[in-house]
């Protein structure tokens, strides 16, 4: 979910950070990268201030829909997306930087505008980075603990993510077996995601004829 939520903004932000020529770019990049270096608990606290019942976005959401965000599944998704976003943006930014600008220029002279060029040239050629970014975000969101526990808490069946479940199981009496099962599931999912990503990137490299 958090991958899906952050994919399109991640693409736009990656493109912007790769191609935008402006002194403001460094500032924007810093803000986007912030969740990567902040302790997740701090990120979670800031998000809670923003999305909590009395936070500006949380209150607005409640005013419109009557529901709340904090301590729901949506909160898990938001926490995971924000924490994973820098990883997504950075790998997309790097792969867009790897696309030869002159290919984009040729596309323009052939009559395709900026947007069409992005969709037809830049996007397909940076696909490996987009996949890598998605996998990293996915892996990061699976492992996300600090921001989630603050913003979403530990509500069974709703906000209990794998790491939170592992943590609760370990705290419970006789929870060792349950924790081990969850750990195995976690390792399996992560490994599978990585293998799929590597297979895809290998296929893409062969297709483009690079060694």
């Amino acid at each position: 979910m958090s991958v899906a939520v952050s994919l399109v903004p991640g693409l736009l932000m990656g493109w912007l950070l790769a191609r935008w020529q402006s002194p403001l770019r460094a500032l924007l990049q810093g803000v986007v990268m912030l969740p990567l270096v902040l302790p997740p608990v701090v990120t979670g606290y800031l998000l809670l201030k923003l999305f909590g019942a009395r936070g500006p976005l949380g209150a607005a959401y409640e005013g419109v829909t009557g529901g709340r965000i904090a301590y729901t599944t949506a909160a898990c998704v938001i926490a995971a997306a924000v924490v994973g976003f820098p990883l997504m943006v950075e790998s997309i930014r790097l792969s867009i930087l790897g696309v030869d600008r002159r290919l984009e220029q040729v596309s323009r002279t052939l009559g395709r505008g900026r947007w069409a060029t992005f969709l037809r040239v830049t996007l397909p050629l940076s696909l490996p980075g987009i996949v890598a970014g998605s996998v990293l975000t996915f892996a990061r969101s699976l492992g996300e603990f600090g921001a989630t526990i603050i913003l979403a808490g530990d509500v069974e069946g709703e906000t209990r993510t794998i790491p939170i479940a592992v943590y609760s199981a370990l705290n419970a009496v006789d929870g060792d077996d349950a924790a081990m099962r969850l750990v195995l599931v976690s390792v399996a999912i992560s490994l599978l995601a990585l293998l799929v990503a590597f297979a895809f990137m290998g296929w893409q490299r062969r297709r483009l004829g690079n060694p």
Binding site: V106, R108, T109, L110, G111, R112, G113, L125, L208, G209
Partner: peptide, 30 residues
Amino acid sequence: APERREIGYVTQDALLFPHLSVRQNLLYAP
């Protein structure tokens, strides 16, 4: 804008789109 100038541009490196076939490269322009 370059896409509305109707000017062809060929460089030292052919700069073909590597993810497209020769046919798709040839038919790239609208």
